[in-house]
Amino acid sequence: MTVPVIGEGEARVEQLGMAAVTILVGVFGCIGYFFVSNLILDRIYPASGPQAGRNINRAGAIRPWLFLMPALALLGVYLVYPVFVSVWLSFHDARGETFVGADNYVWLINDAKFRESMWNNLMWLVFVPAASTFLGLVAAAVTDRIRWGNFAKAMIFMPMAISFVGAAVIWKLIYEYRPDGQEQIGVLNAVWTAMGGQAQTWLTLPGVNSFFLMIVLVWIQTGFAMVILSAALRGIPEETIEASILDGASPLQIFFKIKVPQIWGTILVVWTTITITVLKVFDIVLTMTNGQWGTQVLANLMYDWMFRGNDTGRASTAAIIIMLMVTPIMIWNIRNAAKETR
């Protein structure tokens, strides 16, 4: 390791230099593109001269597309085009060469690992959004009433900044197992043995190990739910609450019967947003169990077939299934957004 040190230092400088140049090229390229393209448009259709009126209209029709072009091109290549290619690939063989009809889908339905993944994904879909939303609602209600509420919010919100891989390490330490007779260094086993239980390898326990993975995501997502719901709670008109106090409602009644019904819309938004995150959950499963011991999920199954199975047909089919599961929420979102713009 002594020889490459100089070369490595140079490589590092070069790498940072390349990043800096890219930023400059990206930013100035962008500004340059917009400036030049607008300039050209104004040259072709000058807003003066004999045909000024017609020119202004034409330039006005074209200009929005100049503004949109780079974004549309990137979105087209990086998000729209892949959807079609994936559909195409899912009807082809492992190398994407021969058309195989619905073979991949038939194989998928009969595959034990796929069924396991579907089942686990459904469990994730029920448990994580429900638990995160509920805990987020409790956290929002509680932190809104105390003086150090902002500090408390920041602490509960903090896991949002932590990567899934980092969170996986954090929680693996909690689930750590030591054989009987040794001192337990994982909190869960320490508590469990102190209560008289037998130390467990929690992540390999069939049936419940998935829940230990789900808890990690709940820990991360609760802060998100709390922030959104807290804003919604604060937006509730004071009069409704004052009226219920006058009518003699208890604090719990006020919360569940007056406040919660008024923020149903927001709760639904939080729920669906977390649902989308859950459908794509990958890092946590990959790094904590890699889908072993009955914890496989769709996104990791897809990754398995992509890199370990080297089968673009089956991998794409798994990806399409994820897409199909996301689609209802996508349509719901689009409808809501359309309603709002109108």
């Binding site: 892949p82 994936s86 794509k280 897409m323 996301v326 996508m330």
Partner: peptide, 25 residues
């Protein structure tokens, strides 16, 4: 309006769908 709706739709497109085609590209 159609483009805005499209952007809202693309918000939730799973990354998994994009990986293989883009790697090939």
């Amino acid at each position: 309006a159609l483009l805005v709706a499209g952007v809202v739709g693309l918000l939730v497109v799973p990354l998994q769908l994009a990986l293989i085609p883009l790697l090939k590209l």
